[in-house]
Design a protein around this nucleic acid. Sequence first.
DNA 1: CCAATGGTTCGGTGGCCGCCAAACCATGCC
DNA 2: GGCATGGTTTGGCGGCCACCGAACCATTGG
Lengths: 268, 268
Amino acid sequence: MPVAAPGPSRYDFAMVAAANMVEVAALVGDTARATMLAALMGGQALTASELASRARISRSTASGHLGKLVGARLLDVTQKRRNRYYRIASPLVARMLEGIKAVAAIEVPQRHQPRSATDDRLRFARTCYDHLAGHLGVAIADALVAGGHVVLADDGGEVTAAGLNFLSAFGAELGPKSGSRRIFCRPCLDWSERRYHIAGHVGAEINRCCLERGWLRRDRDSRIVRVTPAGQIGLRKTFGIDLGGGRASAPSREHGVMNGRLWTSSGE
Amino acid sequence: MPVAAPGPSRYDFAMVAAANMVEVAALVGDTARATMLAALMGGQALTASELASRARISRSTASGHLGKLVGARLLDVTQKRRNRYYRIASPLVARMLEGIKAVAAIEVPQRHQPRSATDDRLRFARTCYDHLAGHLGVAIADALVAGGHVVLADDGGEVTAAGLNFLSAFGAELGPKSGSRRIFCRPCLDWSERRYHIAGHVGAEINRCCLERGWLRRDRDSRIVRVTPAGQIGLRKTFGIDLGGGRASAPSREHGVMNGRLWTSSGE
DNA sequence: CCAATGGTTCGGTGGCCGCCAAACCATGCC
DNA sequence: GGCATGGTTTGGCGGCCACCGAACCATTGG
């Protein structure tokens, strides 16, 4: 730190303003910690050992990292029985990580990574903190936009009056402030689809409703979401989404199409 | 990097997914680079030497940092005469930095930093990438919300029908898509006021209009914005904002009130 | 032409920080 | 009580990277 200069200058502000940012960004700017955070972006709390395993580091190292993340209020801990469960501390943190990911997704899109069955399932449907992402998440967003229920743009999202009725009928609890025109709808850049899906309160509610109806089922300890047979039908009837008619969990034909469309357009 | 493990596992995804994030976050997670980025969040392009000076590092070191930032597409460069001007590469990057700053602002709010005249002016009115922030920015946002022209919430912002008329009359160019109900309005967490001001296209337009009318004037090479006498009147008549009636540039009485209200509520 | 200014490249140095293993504490189960 | 499991603490090692000065290139101006 080159803070050996004597007196304060007019530029000190920038340094002070950056100071906290540096701390936070540096925290994310480490492979092990970022891996943990990415894992926790699945939305569910995970134990220290689990996180250590995912980041491929020893438990002692993980413990140190988690301590820092909690200290910086990026993560919350709750003790349950013998285990310590860590989770993303706030939606603000989730949004920050989304933002970083969105920027990271811009650069070097060509580097072709190997795809596994797990990877395919993730690309097909997964949770993003508290809402749905992947092919499914984008498809739902598309359907809602096409139906005039939601408007999405780079800088924000909006639920239309018709959409409010539609989503309420679907079971979404849009809160007591739904009359006050509060906006809970936000676009979130999907890293695999490179398009927007719906985040914010509305996104979380859609996710919740689908889970409650048994349309979707989450993998244990993973971000993967599977569509049940009932979900196939329900999603088609409600949103007009056809997931390929094949097997319930990630029909591979869809992926071929999806990935083909995605990665050929190499332009950012 | 502990990538010595042999076969791929089901957790590789998280690592791959995190890889790019790490790169970007690590870039921001350095004092010198973050200082430069913070300076460039003022919205105007700066030269390499200027940035080196602000970050208090040698030009050679700065050159290295800037090379990395440009390489990662966080910054753009344009050569003009002898100088190289750097600027934030895209609104996506600006949003990311806002997001990091918002998280950073949560923690340790008590640490009382010394305030200078420059600092006070920054807290009073400044640019945030392409829109207005500080006391003034929040006051405008408040006025628009109170007038029913804009709705702001944690997850998004919206311009009402009335607001569309109002802002258009004010001179804001809300684009040809204004009929398609596109949303360009976005809340941006103000680090000094700890409340939202208006960002996105709408925020940029408001800023532009105020500058064009001569209501505001930017400091050269600084994020500081000054309110002209004409601006005093205009802002009061148009938005109903009373900036204290005193001198045009940052009446100190206002700051006392402002800061008192801000930092005493130490709860995040 | 030379001088001045803005910027980059190159070597070499220093420090911070991530990593692990081993020891240690705490909780829960038999 | 005693074993097992989950987490944290400690000490020591190693590598990456930010930093600078000096030399070097490029542009502009006299």
